[in-house]
């Protein structure tokens, strides 16, 4: 039992010495309650300290350990070895992102996209803090709650072919977040935010492959958010068409 092992094929890329990524195989002890991240840590601690990857909370909420496991975008902290044993496991960095090193991807484009949807409450009138919280009924909360659950793990970007084909596409997580704020009863930033959400790079870039929602570990369902965003953008477009400026 203790001697059982499993093979991890890990994509390596060290910018200081490699011209392109190559696979490296590691034999790792197999434990039923180990996740892929445990195996990677075992490699790093005992076999090869040069293997680089991100991780933090190891409980599926910080969103930093997303990788391609056997071709699927997964959080490695809740992907168990037992799902694959005794077959080898292939671990690669998330696709549709540049590789910084080994399993570490470059997050800059994602952060830029996040900013584009203005993920903050926009108010025309700011309520003084002394006047207490806004009221929001449970029903109003549930309108956007699901879309606020995104942990920015970016698995959806790796799953979305549109992100790969058109890097300028704002993408599932950021759009879902933009729509989360559009649906928030406390927000008044509709016009401002719609400029991005309803742009060509926004919801209209989506062809509804739907894979983003399949891989989402938090059931945010960004595909649903984006389709609802299309409906919202369409109603808005007709409203603007029918009503003269300034009277909306």
């Amino acid at each position: 039992m203790a001697d059982e092992t499993i093979i991890l094929r890990v994509l390596r890329y060290r910018p200081e010495q490699d011209s392109e990524p190559t696979f490296q195989e590691y034999e790792v002890p197999y434990r039923k309650d180990w996740v892929v991240l445990d195996a990677l840590n075992w490699i790093k601690e005992y076999k090869d300290g040069t293997l680089s990857f991100r991780w933090s909370c190891r409980m599926g909420v910080c969103g930093s350990c997303g990788m391609m496991v056997n071709g699927r975008a997964r959080l490695t902290c809740n992907t168990f070895l037992r799902e694959f044993y005794p077959n080898p496991i292939t671990v690669e960095p998330l696709v549709n992102f540049d590789i910084e090193r080994d399993l570490v991807i470059c997050m800059d484009p994602f952060i830029e996209k996040l900013k584009r949807v203005k993920p903050w409450i926009i108010r025309e009138d700011v309520k003084p803090v002394e006047d207490g919280p806004y009221e929001q009924s449970p029903a109003e909360l549930y309108r956007y709650k699901q879309f606020s659950m995104c942990i920015n793990c970016m698995l959806c970007y790796a799953a979305c072919p549109v992100v790969g084909l058109h890097p300028e596409f704002i993408g599932p997580a950021a759009l879902a977040l933009g729509i989360r704020y559009l649906l928030d009863s406390r927000d008044q930033g509709w016009d401002e935010r719609m400029e991005e959400v309803a742009s060509h790079d926004g919801v209209w870039g989506c062809t509804f492959v739907g894979e983003c929602s399949e891989v989402c570990p938090k059931h945010v369902d960004p595909a649903a958010a984006i389709q609802q965003g299309k409906v919202m953008a369409t109603l808005d477009w007709f409203k603007r068409l029918l009503m003269p400026r300034g009277q909306r």
Binding site: P15, E16, V95, D98, I99, C106, P161, L165
Partner: peptide
Amino acid sequence: RRPYRRPMPKTW
């Protein structure tokens, strides 16, 4: 830094 960009295959 030398980020590596992986191409998207036509047969994706």
